[in-house]
Amino acid sequence: MSAWSGCFGVEPHCFFKSDMLYSTQMIKHLNISIYGGGGGLKEQERSVLLEKKQALLHEIRQSTDIFKALADPVRQDILMMFMIAKRMNVAQVVEQSHLSRPAISHHLKILKQAGILDSLKEKTEVYYSLTLENSVIDQLKAIIRAAENITNDPAKAFEEHEWLSHKK
């Protein structure tokens, strides 16, 4: 069971914002309660915008392993090594690092699980290289597209205006 499971007993789809915990159901409730009633966003516009927000959240969740892998400075350094050397085994990475072989192996495993590195076994050695497939790049582009869908939605501008006027 993940740390995200059962936020307030609502659902496992939660995230943090401004030190408050939100779930997608809570967002929907906030949108309806703030904008419900005359003059606000139409129900259909709210629904479409909410679907776009949920699509963005889904894409971000699909990329969690990528973000975790890229967040660590040691793994960033390892990736820079692969920018220079096209392929390396664990020993070659260890030679260029201050970390132990088990620590480097751990970091390489995380990068491989995230789809950032590929591995190829040749006899007794495993060689790593940057993934030639664009799956990681495609996933990050999907996040950007989902965010742009929200940003470019005319209802988003109206929602922000309504939100600010209700805050005052």
Results as ranks from 00 to 15, higher is better:
H29I: 01
A55Y: 01
V74N: 12
S63A: 15
K52S: 06
T64E: 03
I116Y: 04
S47M: 08
R101D: 12
L30E: 13
E122V: 15
F67M: 10
L30S: 09
S23V: 00
V90N: 13
N31E: 01
S47G: 11
A103V: 11
L99I: 11
I104T: 08
I143G: 04
A55S: 13
L132Q: 15
I137W: 01
K141N: 08
S135K: 14
V126F: 00
Y35P: 12
S33N: 13
W4R: 15
L49C: 06
K68N: 13
H106Y: 10
A142R: 12
A157F: 11
I110A: 11
I110E: 07
Q62K: 15
E125G: 02
D19E: 10
E122R: 15
R46P: 10
S100N: 13
E133F: 09
E133I: 08
T151Q: 07
H58W: 06
D19Y: 09
M81P: 14
F16K: 14
D65E: 05
K53H: 03
I104C: 10
Y127S: 05
L41V: 05
I143C: 12
V48S: 08
D118N: 15
I144F: 10
S5M: 05
A103N: 08
I60W: 04
Y35V: 03
S5A: 06
V48C: 08
I104H: 06
M83A: 15
L57T: 07
Q62R: 13
K168F: 01
Q92D: 15
L70T: 12
I116R: 07
Y128M: 09
E59D: 03
Y128C: 05
N152K: 14
Q92L: 11
Q139I: 00
L56D: 01
C7V: 04
M26Y: 04
G40T: 02
K17W: 01
D72T: 01
D19C: 11
V93K: 07
K109T: 10
V93G: 06
S135I: 06
L164H: 09
T24G: 11
D153V: 02
E148Q: 13
E125P: 13
L50N: 12
E148N: 13
S5G: 08
A69G: 08
K42V: 02
K17H: 09
M83S: 15
D118Y: 10
R46H: 00
G37L: 06
F16T: 11
T24D: 09
K112I: 00
L79H: 06
G36T: 03
Y35M: 12
K17M: 07
